[in-house]
C-alpha cells in the first residue's frame, strides 16, 4: 500500500514534466523524420551506389568471341530417345551403325565399342561374329615369341581406320578425325550438335566469309572452318529396311547410334530409374500406413481433466 502510493505520486510528477516536453517537441516534429532516417538513407544510398559501381565494373559480360568463333548454336530437335520413358529405337541404331560402317568408319574410329556390345542391341550374334571375323587382330605371342594374326572375335573392339593419331593426321591434311565412341557426350549440344553439323553444310558460303585453304564452311563448327567436308548425301547408303536414305535420315540414324555408343546403358538406366520411383513410392506409402498404425494409440487417446475432489470443504 505504501509503495503503491509512492509510485502514484511519482507518476503525477512525471506527467507534469512529460506534458511540457511533449509540447516543446511538437514544433520540431516536422523536421525529425529526416534526422531520424538520415543514417538509414545514407547507408541505403551507399549500398545502392556500391551495387551500381560493381555492375559498372564487372556486370556486363565481356564477349571477346565473335559469333563466328562461337559457331551457330544447334537447334534443339525433339529426339524421341531423349525422353524419360523412351528407349533407343533399335531399328534406327541398326541403320545408324550401317551409316557409321559405310561412311564414317573410313576416317573415324569407334575404339571403345567391342563387337560383343553390338550383339542384341544392333546386330544378331551371327552377324556380329561374321563382322568381327572380317578383321584381323594380333594374337598373343606364340612359342617363338612371334605375334601372328587371327580373325576377330566377339570380344575384339571395332578396328580403327588408322594405326595411331599421327597416321590419322598425316592422312587428313593435319586434321585428326576424333574417335566417335563418346562424341555425343563430348560436345556441347550432344545429338543436336552432331546432327546439325552433319546436315548443316550450306550450299554456298555466305558472302564475304573467308574459308581457309583445305577447310570447309560449316556454321555449327566453332570458327566455321572444319576440315571434314560434307560426307552425307542422299542415297549414299542403301538401308536394308528400305527407309529412304536422305541426308537428314542418315544423320539422324548415325547420331542416335553414336548416342548409343556413348551411353549404351541408357535403356537400362531409364528402367532402373523407373524401378527407383516404384520402390520409393511403395516404401513411402508403406511408411505412411506404418506411421498411422504406430500413432493410433496416441491419436485416439483422450486426456480428461477431472477436477480434484476437495472433500467436504467444496462449498467454501
Amino acid at each position: 500500500m505504501l509503495a503503491r502510493s509512492r509510485l502514484f505520486v511519482g507518476a503525477v510528477r512525471n506527467a507534469a514534466v512529460n506534458t511540457t516536453k511533449r509540447a516543446a517537441s511538437t514544433s520540431a516534429e516536422a523536421a525529425s523524420p529526416f534526422k531520424l532516417n538520415a543514417a538509414g538513407t545514407a547507408a541505403t544510398a551507399v549500398a545502392m551506389g556500391s551495387m551500381a559501381w560493381y555492375y559498372h565494373l564487372y556486370g556486363p559480360e565481356l564477349h571477346a568471341m565473335t559469333p563466328v568463333e562461337e559457331g551457330l548454336h544447334p537447334t534443339k530437335y525433339p529426339w524421341v530417345h531423349a525422353q524419360y520413358t523412351k528407349t533407343f529405337d533399335h531399328q534406327a541404331l541398326r541403320r545408324g551403325f550401317q551409316v557409321y560402317r559405310e561412311v564414317c568408319a573410313s576416317c573415324h574410329s569407334l575404339s571403345r565399342i567391342p563387337y560383343r556390345s553390338l550383339v542384341g542391341t544392333v546386330l544378331t550374334v551371327d552377324e556380329a561374329k561374321a563382322m568381327a571375323e572380317e578383321n584381323e587382330y594380333d594374337t598373343e605371342p606364340n612359342d617363338e615369341g612371334e605375334i601372328e594374326k587371327r580373325p576377330g572375335k566377339l570380344s575384339d573392339y571395332l578396328p580403327s581406320p588408322y594405326k595411331n593419331d599421327e597416321a590419322a593426321r598425316a592422312a587428313n591434311n593435319g586434321a585428326l578425325p576424333p574417335d566417335l565412341s563418346l562424341m555425343v557426350k563430348a560436345r556441347h549440344g550432344g545429338c543436336d550438335y552432331i546432327f546439325s553439323l552433319l546436315t548443316g553444310y550450306p550450299e554456298e558460303t555466305p558472302a564475304g566469309a573467308v574459308v581457309p585453304e583445305g577447310l570447309n564452311f560449316n556454321p555449327y563448327f566453332p570458327g566455321t572452318g572444319i576440315a571434314m567436308a560434307r560426307v552425307l548425301y542422299n542415297e549414299l547408303v542403301e538401308y536394308e529396311d528400305e527407309t529412304p536414305a536422305t541426308t537428314s535420315q542418315m544423320a539422324k540414324d548415325v547420331v542416335e547410334f553414336l548416342n548409343w555408343s556413348a551411353e549404351p546403358e541408357m535403356d537400362q538406366r531409364k528402367k532402373m530409374g523407373m524401378k527407383v520411383l516404384v520402390i520409393t513410392s511403395a516404401l513411402f506409402a508403406l511408411s505412411v500406413w506404418v506411421k498411422r498404425y504406430k500413432w493410433s494409440p496416441v491419436k485416439t487417446r483422450k486426456v480428461v481433466y477431472a477436477q480434484p475432489q476437495m472433500g467436504g470443504r467444496r462449498g467454501h
Binding site: T66, P67, V68, L72, P202, P206, V210, P219
Partner: peptide, 10 residues
C-alpha cells in the same frame, strides 16, 4: 562478311 546474318537466318 554476312556470316552473322547467315547465322540468324539459319
Amino acid at each position: 562478311d554476312c556470316v552473322e546474318e547467315f547465322f540468324h537466318l539459319a
